[in-house]
C-alpha cells in the first residue's frame, strides 16, 4: 500500500535520512525501531508531507505523494498521531476530535458515528468530552491524539512514539488498543522507542540507525536477532 523508495532528507547540513526504503502492506502493523535521532520521526514526518524529501519517492497505492502538501496527504487516507501528542490544548476534547474529522466536514452523522467509535475505544475520553485538552493527563492526551487521528478514517495510521512518557501499565493498554485498531481494518505504521512492546504487536519491523535502514524482517525474527536483542531490547 505504502512504498517508500530511497528517501533522503537533510536539515541544513545535517543528513537526517539516507536512502531509506520501506513498504507497508494493507492490514499490517509495521514498526520502525531505532535510537533517538536515527530518523524514525523524520521518516513519518516526510510521509505526512511536513518535511520535503531531498530525493527519493513515496507512493501510496502506486501514486506518488511526496510532492503533495500535508493536508492533501491526509485527504488520501494517511493520518498521523505526532510525537509529543500535540493536542490543541485550549480546545475541548470534542473540538479536537471534530478537527480530526476536518477532511470529512460534509458528513455530520458519520462524524458523530466515528466519534462514538473513538469513545468506545477510549471510554476515558467520553467522560472528558467537554474538558479542555490541556488539562488532561499525559495518558489521556495520548488517547486523544490517537482518537483524533482515527477521526480522519485513515487507511494508514501512523503513530509516533505513542508510549513515550506513559506509566508502564498504560503502555500496555495503548499497545492493546493499537492491536484492536488494526484488527478493525486500519493499517498501522508504528514508530517506537519501546522496541519490546512494538515488536510484540507488529507483523514486521524495520531497524533504523543514523538515517539508514539496517535491518528489516518479521517482527518475530527481529525479536530473536542477536544484534537487535543487544541494542534495542537490552538483553
Amino acid at each position: 500500500m505504502l512504498k517508500v523508495t530511497d528517501l533522503s532528507v537533510s536539515y541544513g547540513a545535517i543528513k537526517a535520512l539516507n536512502s531509506v526504503s520501506l513498504e507497508v502492506q494493507k492490514g499490517e502493523i509495521v514498526t520502525m525501531i531505532g535510537a533517538n535521532g536515527a530518523g524514525k520521526s523524520t521518516t513519518i514526518r516526510t510521509i505526512s508531507g511536513l518535511v520535503k524529501p531531498q530525493s527519493g519517492t513515496i507512493e501510496l497505492d502506486g501514486k506518488p505523494i511526496h510532492t503533495l502538501p500535508p493536508h492533501q496527504i491526509v485527504h488520501l487516507g494517511i493520518s498521523q498521531s505526532p510525537e509529543g501528542r500535540r493536542v490543541f490544548s485550549t480546545m475541548t476534547v470534542h473540538e479536537n476530535l471534530q478537527l480530526g474529522a476536518y477532511t470529512r466536514r460534509g458528513s455530520r452523522s458519520s462524524v458523530l458515528e466515528d466519534m462514538d467509535r473513538v469513545f468506545s475505544l477510549f471510554p476515558r475520553l467520553k467522560e472528558r468530552e467537554r474538558q479542555v485538552a490541556g488539562t488532561l493527563s499525559g495518558g489521556e492526551q495520548q488517547m486523544l491524539a490517537m482518537g483524533r487521528a482515527l477521526m480522519a478514517r485513515p487507511t494508514l495510521l501512523m503513530l509516533d512514539e505513542p508510549s513515550l512518557g506513559l506509566a508502564p501499565f498504560l503502555v500496555q493498554t495503548i499497545f492493546k488498543i493499537i492491536q484492536e485498531i488494526n484488527e478493525q481494518g486500519t493499517t498501522v505504521l508504528l514508530v517506537e522507542q519501546n522496541a519490546h512492546q512494538a515488536l510484540r504487536v507488529a507483523h514486521r519491523g524495520y531497524v533504523l540507525e543514523t538515517g539508514q535502514v539496517t535491518m528489516s524482517d518479521n517482527a518475530a525474527n527481529l525479536m530473536t536477532d542477536d544484534g537487535v536483542r543487544r541494542a534495542y531490547l537490552g538483553e
Binding site: 485527504h75 490543541f88 476536518y102
Partner: peptide
C-alpha cells in the same frame, strides 16, 4: 464555525493542524 475552528487550530499548532488535513497556508 468550522472555518474559525481551523483558524484557532492553526494558531495553536500549525504542524498538528496540517496533520488534521487543514490547508494551513
Amino acid at each position: 464555525t468550522a472555518t474559525g475552528r481551523s483558524i484557532r487550530a492553526v494558531s495553536l499548532d500549525r504542524d498538528a493542524a496540517a496533520l488534521m488535513g487543514i490547508p494551513t497556508d
